[in-house]
Amino acid sequence: MRRPATERPLPPADDHAARFARQREADRSATAEDYVELIADLLREDGEARAVDIARRMGVSQATVTATVGRLQRDGLVETKPYRGLFLTEAGQQMARTAKARHDLVVRFLIAVGLDSETAEEDAEGLEHHASEKALTAFAQFLARHDKGQP
Rank of each mutant, 00 (worst) to 15 (best):
D34M: 12
D15G: 15
A17W: 06
S29A: 12
A63K: 05
S117N: 04
R22P: 02
T6F: 14
S132W: 05
Q73N: 03
E48P: 04
D53K: 03
I54G: 00
E7T: 11
Q141W: 04
G76D: 10
G70H: 00
R50G: 03
G114P: 02
E128W: 06
E79F: 15
L10R: 12
G59K: 00
V52F: 08
M95W: 08
D34K: 11
T31M: 05
E118M: 08
G114I: 01
R56P: 01
V113R: 03
L86P: 00
A144T: 15
R2K: 10
F87R: 15
H16W: 11
L38C: 03
A21E: 13
H129W: 11
L143M: 09
H129T: 05
T119Y: 08
G92P: 10
R2A: 14
D15S: 11
I39A: 01
Q23N: 10
R50W: 04
L86R: 00
D75N: 12
E37H: 07
R3H: 09
A55D: 04
R84Q: 15
G85D: 03
E45D: 13
R102D: 07
D147V: 10
S132Q: 04
R71K: 13
R24H: 12
A135Q: 13
E125T: 09
I54W: 02
R97V: 13
K100E: 12
H130L: 07
E25C: 08
A140L: 08
D46M: 03
A26E: 05
M58G: 00
L42Y: 02
A5W: 14
V65Q: 00
L115C: 03
R22F: 06
R71Q: 07
A13C: 02
M58C: 06
T68F: 00
A17H: 06
A26V: 07
T64R: 03
S29C: 11
D104I: 05
E118S: 08
A138R: 12
D104S: 09
A18K: 13
G126D: 09
R71D: 07
I39V: 07
S61E: 02
Q93W: 15
F139R: 03
